[in-house]
Design a protein around this nucleic acid. Structure first.
Lengths: 353, 353
DNA sequence: TTCGCCGATGTTTGCGTAAACATCACGCTC
DNA sequence: GAGCGTGATGTTTACGCAAACATCGGCGAA
């Protein structure tokens, strides 16, 4: 910086003013400084800047796994959104999701150059008491139930699940089975609760819960079990991957989708429209979740007050070809058809959104 | 820090020594300092540290999209690997993959607190000449062809593709069709080249190339086209997502997999085992790619010399249920079956690309 | 005993920046 | 024309840390 100042014939303070876009600098002076900066290839040193200003313009992200589409898409949206606000994003992977590991991540974070933290993970691993964060680091949590402790941004899990169940009931199904996510997950919990509540509200009896772990493989195992139950005509899978495994199991067991069993997913991953058959599912707006996270975190940083509360991002039902009225309602002519080849496709093949 | 020093009754320099694990400090003194640090909740300020040491212990990652599994898994591995070396990882998303955007990302990077950069993207957007990096920022590129300009780490695309094609030829297929990735991608290019080369080497004639864009949807469109060709008995899809779409199209057109057509993918994404049928594919070791990236980047930083060259990470063929000998080789009974096959889909409705 | 050496600790200094304050020239008012 | 305000620019300083150097005390060899 001193070199630039010397070359431009000004003081280093003026160089600083130029590089920060400060107003009170003559156009002429500014021009000289800019020329000198260019000639010398000057780049402000961000460490010194951060030291002086007391902020890093960086947001830390703690996440357990990038294996699920949701986390990844959210992360991507956060990064993009943060970038447009002039913030960088640094990643803090937590290898094993134990309480200790999470605490470890937080403590590493403490010596990390971040002004705020966004946590994308099952939040029951977050024990507020055990976390000592640097005083001015704000926290926002995604996918959680911690509204009273942290600021939370999340997809409207309940609303989406309700829409999924209603869709199946409206098609005429007597009840809807649920392939739930893992026990520890709050998102899974929320979807399960909403499923049960919607059924009860409609006067139906919720069938026994079937549990998976988000993976396609677990969906397959659950599917083998469900395929054996004649009375099961509609399944709400808590995510698309499990729905994929479910489809495979049903197919293997000779249960047609959607003629015999309707399947609905959750997430609307990119591949959902290419499943066999294309999957009806609940679309999550991850991009919006990411944007809201960044907004929330910046708002908190500016307000400095420990703000709480939850922001919900709405979902959208995407109807494709994996749902239809139950076999009972399509008696007569349909019965014959079901016998030969499935008549799927006509309704949804190309309409994937 | 001064407060800690006062409380512990030592100088601030001793505090510094303790927090950096410097050797020459009595256990007793160290204990007092640690106690004081704990009592005051002291955390070293990373900005000051970086300023003093001249390094940030941070690696920047430039990536265009997190939509493909490969990029994400590589990113995850890099983050984990970097963390274990005491490095943080900051993300630099590039919204639109134009030359200008990439250049923009690099220039934002210049004022960013990073010691090195790893680029995960199609590298033909990287114009070495137009990039002015801060002098000591090292670059490593994934998935590219830039071995003579940058240090490159990549999956052994050629080896994996060769294995895929060989596998199909060994099963008895006369030739192998190829559903390629988008034109601009070097990874796609490599896979295509290896496919062609392996066929030629074996004295076979490569059929016309079919092109997709990595998405399942594009695989579906290509599949509709391929399904119409009786002579097509084996397809090598350049990634698993396209293979998924391909499976759906073949199924819809009544072409059985693997009885009529064998399909092999590339990547081995988590869901591949749950496709209908489970997909035979080439497994990429993304974790290893990530590790190698970090190793390469750290090596470069330490050596300080502009090192070049390419590190290839081997692949592994995963055999599942989507590949089998061609129909011709399984004559007799099979021929009859093929005969009775419903001829749906003959109404090629022009949607194929 | 004395000297010198070594290990433990303290003191000084500067990393690159920007806030706070100081200065200076210019134009305007009375 | 003296005084004063204003806008542009320069000077000083401190941010928190760690390298370099300084100091001090104890112990072994001569």
């Amino acid at each position: 910086m001193a070199d630039v100042a010397r070359l431009a014939g000004v003081s280093s303070q003026t160089v600083s003013r130029v590089s920060n876009g400060y107003a009170g600098v003559t156009d002429e002076t500014r021009g000289q400084v800019l020329a000198a900066m260019k000639e010398l290839g000057y780049r402000p040193n961000s460490a010194a800047r951060a030291l002086k200003r007391g902020e890093f313009r960086t947001i830390g992200i703690i996440t357990f796994s990038l294996a699920t589409t949701g986390n990844v898409r959210t992360l991507e949206a956060i990064a993009t959104s943060a970038a447009s606000e002039g913030y960088a994003v640094t990643l803090l992977p937590v290898a094993v999701p134990t309480q200790d590991e999470v605490r470890g991540a937080f403590s590493r974070l403490e010596e990390l150059a971040v002004d705020a933290v966004i946590v994308i993970m099952e939040v029951h691993l977050l024990d507020a008491a055990s976390l000592t964060l640097p005083p001015h680091v704000q926290v926002v949590v995604v996918d959680s139930d911690a509204g009273d402790t942290y600021t939370v941004v999340d997809t409207d899990q309940a609303g989406g699940s309700r829409a999924a169940v209603r869709h199946l009931l409206d098609l005429g199904h007597e009840t809807v089975w649920h392939l739930a996510g893992p026990e520890g997950s709050f998102a899974a919990q929320r979807r399960t609760d909403a499923w049960r509540h919607t059924l009860t509200e409609a006067g139906r009896t919720p069938p026994p819960l079937v549990r998976g772990d988000w993976s396609a493989e677990s969906g397959y195992r659950a599917g083998l079990e469900l395929a054996a139950r004649e009375e099961c005509t509609a399944v709400f899978a808590a995510n698309d991957q499990m729905a994929l495994g479910l489809l495979r199991a049903l197919h293997e067991r000779g249960r047609g989708v959607p003629e015999d069993v309707s399947v609905i997913g959750f997430d609307d991953i990119a591949e959902a429209g290419s499943f066999l058959p294309p999957l009806t599912t609940v679309h999550q707006d991850f991009a919006e979740v990411g944007r809201q996270c960044v907004r929330a975190v910046l708002r908190k940083m500016r307000a400095a007050g420990p703000e709480r509360g939850t922001t919900l991002v709405p979902t959208r039902l995407v109807t494709r070809a994996s749902t239809a009225p139950p076999p009972a309602q399509r008696a007569g002519a349909k019965a014959a058809a079901a016998d030969g080849r499935p008549d799927r496709g006509a309704s949804g093949d190309g309409t994937a959104v």
